[in-house]
Nucleic acid binder design. Structure first.
Lengths: 154, 154
DNA sequence: TTCGATGCAAATAGTTTGCATTCTA
DNA sequence: TAGAATGCAAACTATTTGCATCGAA
């Protein structure tokens, strides 16, 4: 979807819900659309403030909450540290490398088999979208093994 | 292991590392041993303060850190909210129900097949012990389905 | 009698909230 | 012009840190 279309689409949802379109809201939404990757509230605030310095971080948090209530965005916890935000369509899981911070997006269906296994064996319905699955990417796993072999700390 | 044996075992590790055995440390360790389930630092502090009111929360945090450095305890993040602590032997994963807070302990080998699958297909070495796997227990999953069918909020 | 442990206060990170004011619809 | 959204300050939760003092070995 073209950035401008996405903007208008979300603003339409917002208006339909009785919400109002303001200049901070346009800027926050724009920052979210333009951002590559997984921005935190702080990063979005910085982007917005580059153009509108008076927009406060609490406004960003409040609007992101609102967008979540409307089902437009989700936030994900990648581990320690701040949450990151992304649009709610094309739902996916996150693998996050504790070594280098790499975030791998995984289609929902990739983990369906595993979810089914846990459902069957443990009567538990995992919900893996709101918290990332932590671990090590190939490179970081290898370099940690090397370090451990040498007697160094992980 | 009998509680008293466990206490003495840990104190031995502590002494061997050059650490000192103090009255707050004995009390914190005792609270950790006696606690059923997955205590937070706050709960441990409360338990300790019932007997020794002057023991400060920061002392509890510092000693828990020390015990982690010694490999005696681990802390796990069950979701939002404070971390919980447990002894590091008999390593296991945690499934935590977002509905009722139930924590299910899962032997490490239960998830090994899944870890192998992700390792093979995604070249990613998951480390699932430090963060719990969130979701819904059978009862909470069922009651949520019922509520959704009735048009109510999850 | 040394140096590790403690109590206390204050700082920190990330996020939320109360409230008077502003601005959209 | 009603009421939603904002800016700002302050609260909040979970945790960490600096520092003078205390006490175990």
């Amino acid at each position: 979807m073209a950035p401008v279309d996405r903007l208008e689409q979300v603003l339409a949802v917002l208006r339909a819900s009785g919400g109002r379109v303001t200049s901070p809201r346009r800027a926050i939404l724009w920052a979210l659309i333009e951002h590559q990757g997984h921005p935190t509230a702080e990063q979005l605030t910085a982007d917005v403030q580059a153009r509108q310095p008076d927009v406060h971080e609490s406004t960003v948090y409040r609007f992101l909450d609102e967008l979540e209530r409307l089902g437009v965005v989700d936030h994900v916890h990648l581990g320690h540290g701040p949450a990151v935000y992304h649009f709610a369509d094309d739902p996916h899981h996150h693998l996050v490398c504790e070594g280098c911070g790499l975030v791998v997006e995984v289609p929902v269906r990739t983990l369906e088999e595993f979810r089914g296994l846990v459902r069957r064996d443990l009567q538990f319905e995992m919900e893996l979208r709101h918290f990332a699955l932590p671990g090590r990417c190939k490179a970081c796993a290898a370099s940690r093994r090397a370090a451990n072999a040498g007697g160094l700390r992980p």
